[in-house]
């Protein structure tokens, strides 16, 4: 029973840890499917986290915080669009720039506005997204097997967690069942064809980047307003890059993205759980090994040893109307 509880708890923290990855990964999916590489997921998440926590603590409202997180994150996405779509700059360089601007400005503004060493004030319960307890969750907790699954895994998360998982089928539906999705995928594969059909490549790509900004904003808000009661400097800590890795791992498909993020979240949860405890047969596994595993797996996948990851064909190439 102890073992079962341990497993349930690990899976529960897997869900909590995969949510920001999943949101950022789906965010990257929109922009990369539209042919815009986005290394700036990390930075957009960071400004989202900061704006969310800052607005929530000033206006005492979680929803205003979320709105501000989305707004600022979209603004950064539009800067990326301005550089890489309008001015046809190098998309990777632009993404790198956004990450630095985000990392620096969140610390400077945080320190100037709140004077707590780059943190925002700790959020009160009303300023955060609280866990939603599903009906009967406490009653069935004692039931073996199914009880913990219902009360730990399904119930007791914040609204953003459910939103993140609902975004998976929604993204699938948008990409594969709507006209916008068809065009978005087309512009990532062959923008000239989209242009010939009389659709503006630039506007389509901007719209894809706005979707990206919205989702990274939610991801950031989750970090600072759900997982942690306030903003801490550099709190994304490479999650944007893991999300990028997960996106490649998922071969740019929404449902795969969910499984990739759950896998990477599980590795993270396992690393925390197993810290210092020896495993049977293998002995003590260094935590660092578990932390490096998502990156190693991604490199192996990219090398084409586990299936082949083929990115959208026009990815990273600015569109020029006439050559």
């Amino acid at each position: 029973m102890d073992l079962f509880n341990a497993i349930a708890q690990t899976l529960d923290s897997t869900i909590r840890l995969s949510v920001p990855l999943l949101l950022a990964c789906l965010a990257g999916l929109y922009s990369e499917r539209a042919g815009i590489f986005d290394i700036g997921l990390e930075g957009k998440m960071l400004v989202g986290a900061f704006a969310g926590a800052a607005a929530a603590s000033v206006f005492h409202s979680a929803y205003l915080g979320l709105g501000m997180a989305i707004l600022i994150s979209v603004a950064f996405a539009l800067i990326h669009g301005f550089a890489s779509i309008t001015h046809r700059g190098n998309q990777i360089v632009s993404g790198v720039a956004i990450n630095f601007i985000a990392a620096g400005s969140t610390i400077i503004l945080g320190q100037a506005w709140f004077q707590q060493g780059g943190r925002t004030p700790a959020l009160a319960p009303a300023e955060r997204f609280e866990a939603i307890i599903w009906p009967g969750a406490d009653a069935v907790r004692g039931v073996p097997i199914l009880g913990p699954i219902y009360s730990e895994l399904i119930s007791g998360h914040s609204v953003l967690v459910y939103l993140a998982f609902l975004m998976v089928p929604f993204t699938w539906w948008v990409l594969f069942r709507t006209r916008f999705g068809l065009r978005l995928r087309a512009v990532g594969e062959n923008p000239a064809a989209v242009d010939t059909a009389g659709i503006s490549v630039a506007w389509l790509r901007y719209r894809a980047l706005i979707c990206t900004g919205v989702l990274t904003g939610v991801a950031g808000a989750y970090l600072s307003m759900v997982q942690n009661g306030g903003f801490v400097k550099d709190m994304t800590a490479g999650k944007g890059y893991i999300a990028l890795a997960a996106l490649i791992f998922a071969k740019w498909k929404p449902v795969n993205a969910m499984f990739a993020c759950l896998l990477f979240g599980f590795l993270d949860a396992l690393a925390i759980r197993l810290q210092g405890t020896p495993l049977p047969l293998i002995g003590r596994v260094p935590v660092q090994f578990m932390q490096a595993l998502p990156y190693v797996l991604t490199v192996i996948l990219l090398a084409g040893f586990i299936g082949k990851a083929i990115p959208p064909r026009a990815g990273g190439v600015p569109y020029v109307k006439e050559r």
Binding site: F82, G89, N90, S94, A97, I98, F100, G104
Partner: peptide, 16 residues
């Protein structure tokens, strides 16, 4: 870090 990011943005991504 901000200045560094801005230099990368203006000298790199927005060079055109």
């Amino acid at each position: 870090v901000i200045i560094q990011g801005l230099v990368i943005l203006f000298a790199g991504a927005l060079e055109h």
